[in-house]
Each structure stands twice: as C-alpha cells, then as structure tokens.
Design a protein around this nucleic acid. Structure first.
Length: 483
RNA sequence: GGCCCGUUGGUGAAGCGGUUAACACAUAUGCCUUUCACGCAUACAUCCACGGGUUCGAAUCCCGUACGGGUCACCA
C-alpha cells in the first residue's frame, strides 16, 4: 500500500444496521485492520427528511456488538471531522462555488414540475431513463434574476463532459469504464442548500484521506460521478472495490420487506446469535480465504483477509450455514456464558422459579450440542413444561409392545434409587430391559413415552433426571393406568 | 431499452490453460452411544448456463446467445 490505509463505513441514519451494511462495514474493517489502517465511521445524513431518531446510535451499537469498532466516529472524532455531513454543509457549498467559477457546474432553475414534465415527455418518446437537457446551462444573468423574482430557488448541477470516459480499476471486478455521455448533468447541491450524496462522499473521502472504498455494487454507477469531482477539484480519489449484493434464497437482492431472512443485526442479537459467529459468517459472505477451514476467530480473519479474494458473484444468505456456524460457537461456550445466552429466553417463556440452578445447568448442557441459536432453546425445552399427556396412539403403542410389566419393573428400580442421577437411571432402564428381554427401540421408546409422553427427545436418562424422581414415577404410573 | 456485472452439484464455494473439479452446509446410508441428539465414516457434479472459436489441450482465454442481477432521482 502506498498510502496509509484509511477506510470508512458511512451509513445514512435512515434505519438500523442491516445485513448488507454490516457486511460492507465488516469488509472495510477487515481490510483496514489487515493493513494496519484506520476504520472510520461517518454519517451520511443529508436526507434530512428520512433520518430517524437514534439511527446513528443504533448503527454504532450494533456495529460494536459485532466487534467492529471504529477508530474515528462522531463520538470519537479524529482530526478529520466533522463526521456528520450535515455539520459541514458550508464546505460543500464552497466547493460547489469553485466548480461554478470554473464553469464546471451551473445553477439550475428548473422546478420539479418542469423536470417531471420533461421526464414524462422523454418517457413517451420511449426513453427508459431521464436525461437532463442542460436547459439552464447558459442562462444569462437577466434570466436568472427573472427566475429568482418568480421565487425559484436554484439547485446546482455538474456540467458533465460527454466526451470523457471514466475508467477505474475496481479492486473486486477489474477495469470498469463508463462514458460521460451516459451520465446526465446531476445535481450537486439541492435547492434546499444541502449537497447531494455523490458530492458529499467525494469531498468527505478526499478530506478524510480515505484510501480505499469497499461498498455495494449498486454504487458502481455512482463512481464516475465521484471521479468527475475529484478530477475537477484536483483531489486524490480513493481506490474502489464494489462488493456483490447479498441475495435471498430466490437470488433476488435483499429488499427491506423481504421476510425470508431477518434483515437487521439487532434481530440476530435478540434471538440469541453470537457476535463471534456473525462476524465469522459475514466474512464468508462474498469472500473466502485460501485453504479449507471456515471457522475463524476475528484475529485470524483479519490476518487472512485478502481483498483480491473477494467474490464477483452474488452471495446468497444461507441460513443453514449461519446456524451451523452459530452452533459451533455455542458448543464452545462456557457454562455461565451459555446460561447468560439462554436463560433470559426461558425465563420469559416459562416459570422457572421452582427450578434449581443445578437443573438449569443440566438442561442447558443437555441441549447445547444441538442448539443453533439462543431463542431455539424454548422449543427444545418446552416438553419439560408441558402437561403430561398420552395420545391414543401412544397408549396403543404401549399395549402393542406389551410394556406394562417393563414399566412396573422400572418403577421399582426407580424407587430404590437414593439419588436420581442419569447414570443410575440408565442402569435401571437397562437392567429392567434385560430382565424382560427387551432392548433398543423396544426398550427406550416405551420408557420414553411413559416417562415424558414424548416419542423423541434428548438423552432419556438425563430427561428423566430433569423431570425428577417423583414425577417420573408418577408419570409411569399414569401410563400404566391406561393399559 | 442504454450502460455495468454475474452464471461451477440441492446450497455456499475453491479453481486463474493439463486436477480423480477442493472444502463446507444440507441430504442419504452406515458406525457409535442398546432410542434421540452429538460425533465419526461413506455416498452424492459422466462435468463447470448454452453455442461457436483459439489451443496439442479450456470450467479456466475470445466472441455470440440465453438467463439472472445492478443502475439510470433535487435517495443514500
């Protein structure tokens, strides 16, 4: 790298951190940290009507939950501030004036009604995209004065040179070029005096000495506009890399309304996913390291990160894979961490007051190997809180397997146990089976049914232990009564 | 429609002119624990969207077609 690496994530505070944003932020972060550079968080809040309350804080909080901590941000300013675009509107206006003075930008007095009319007209001519016809390019001072008298407030447009071709080497896609003739004169300062996105980013990136920009592929078409600004103002442009989109299981771009996938990071947090797992998962969404492993710590990923291995084809958000990765990290969790993750969900759903700490610990350890995310514990554990009830078919099954005697034997065995521990319980079930010549499914299914009224579930002996001696025996008695 | 981009098994994804086309998820089967889950093992692309070309040789390079996506705002 011939420049100090400085990258940025620059969301608009119009919503909370979503998957796409998180991934963009992550790759920028990885790149920065890999090259020992800085990761800057900046706010693009120029669309004042759409900004939401708390948007900035929410973005920052979710990012830090994921482990992506900015080196500079509005809350932790470096020497490149301000970090909110609305706080430097005069700067943009100054640069706009420079462009006007150079003849590279001009005031446009067209009203939105006129623009709409022109748009409609072009549409009716079969044009698919609107192109501003430079109507106001050569307005005389008189005409301007006249418009002003009418109460029109001008916007400022960039005067695009249609003979130019803008070419850049994209870090992920290679060379891309776009012709100036394909770009309409675009607004740099809106009539409300606020600069537009493309103008702000260019100036901010230059002023903040941003060296590299990784962003979504929807920004490819913005790149030439930004290049025009750098070129005319003599500013140094960053290098660009355009990440592929994240698509859903139908290969469509993730839209805000897409319900097949949870969109917001906060939702993953709320459902009990682990940040380390999310970090790991996102890093694999559109990137792959050399080698065959897929589970990495944050530091390992930073070390391995290589921007030339960023994928060019869309990344599908694979929920199954996320679950697998998350489960992996859950299995590594220590007892107290596991409890912190799961207990809140259980407490909300069930009455845990008369359950001992030992019981809570055991039940979580029981399900840990198969738990994909925290919230899932509720369904796994639900059978323990449901009323004991045998279905007709279950009773039938117990009759068919001729299990009455077996169950009676198990009760006797259970009653003799001073301590009701899984290992002993298993012993009882097995010796009872041996006595009556039953084994495998013929042994465990009836026993399970009688003890828990369920046909499947976790390790039966542990389940019985968790149900408790008295209740287990009572349950079996209830089952026997039906026979 | 213009411009830009992509297309490898059910899915993610390696691969960069010569490979038995990695690896992972999912699935199936088997083993293990005398059920389940976990774990372990094995299987699963007559072949890299299609059609041409270049080459001794192509998933890999070139052209075209199809399909998919992005973008064409006083939104960011």
């Amino acid at each position: 790298m011939d420049r100090k690496v400085r990258v940025r994530y620059a969301p608009s505070p119009t919503g909370h951190l979503h998957i796409g944003g998180a991934r963009t932020a992550l790759f920028n972060y990885l790149f920065a940290k890999h090259y020992d550079g800085d990761f800057i968080f900046r706010l693009e809040d120029t669309d004042i009507d759409r900004n939401i309350e708390g948007g900035e804080a929410s973005q920052l909080d979710n990012l830090s939950w994921l482990g992506i901590i900015p080196d500079e941000s509005p809350l932790k300013p470096g020497k490149y501030g301000p970090y909110r675009q609305t706080e430097k509107l005069d700067v943009y206006r100054e640069y706009a004036q420079k462009l006007i003075d150079m003849g590279l930008a001009y005031e446009c007095y067209c009203t939105s009604e006129e623009l709409d009319a022109s748009r409609k007209k072009q549409e009716s001519e079969g044009k698919f995209s609107f192109r501003y016809e430079k109507t106001c390019l050569n307005l005389s001072e008189e005409q301007k004065a006249k418009y002003k008298e009418e109460g029109r407030i001008p916007s400022i447009r960039f005067n695009v040179d249609e003979n130019k071709v803008y070419t850049w080497y994209d870090i992920v896609r290679g060379e891309i070029s776009v012709a100036g003739k394909d770009i309409s004169d675009w607004v740099i300062i809106k009539s409300n005096g606020i600069a537009t996105y493309n103008f702000c980013v260019s100036i901010d990136d230059a002023q903040m000495e941003i060296s590299h920009v990784f962003r979504g592929e929807e920004h490819i078409s913005n790149t030439p506009k930004q290049m025009m600004i750098y070129e005319s103002l003599g500013l140094q442009a960053p290098s660009f890399g355009h990440l592929t989109l994240i698509v859903n299981e139908e290969r469509k771009k993730l839209s805000k309304r897409d319900e097949t996938i949870m969109q917001f990071i906060s939702q993953y947090k709320e459902e009990g996913y682990l940040p380390e797992a999310m970090f790991n998962f996102f890093s694999l969404l559109g990137w792959s390291p050399e080698g065959e492993d897929e589970i990495f710590t944050k530091d390992e990923i930073i070390k391995l990160f290589d921007e030339t291995r960023l994928s060019k084809s869309p990344s599908m958000f694979d929920k199954g894979k996320l679950h697998w990765i998350n489960n992996h990290y859950i299995k590594e969790l220590e007892e107290d961490k596991l409890q912190a993750l799961c207990l809140p969900f259980m407490e909300k759903e069930f009455d845990l007051l008369n359950k001992s700490d030992e019981w809570k610990k055991d039940i979580l350890e029981l399900f840990k190997p198969q738990l994909n995310y925290g919230l899932e514990i509720i369904e796994l554990v639900r059978p323990f809180f449901e009323e004991y009830q045998l279905e007709e078919a279950d009773i039938e099954f117990l009759k068919e397997t001729d299990s009455k005697e077996l169950l009676e034997t198990i009760i006797i065995g259970f009653e003799e146990l001073s301590e009701f521990k899984a290992t002993d319980i298993k012993e009882v079930i097995m010796t009872s089976g041996k006595e009556l010549g039953k084994k495998g499914k013929n042994l465990f299914m009836p026993a399970r049914l009688a003890i828990s009224s369920k046909r499947s579930g976790a390790d039966l002996a542990t389940v019985a232990q968790l149900i408790g001696k008295e209740e287990s025996i009572n349950n079996i008695k209830k089952a026997i009564e039906t026979l």
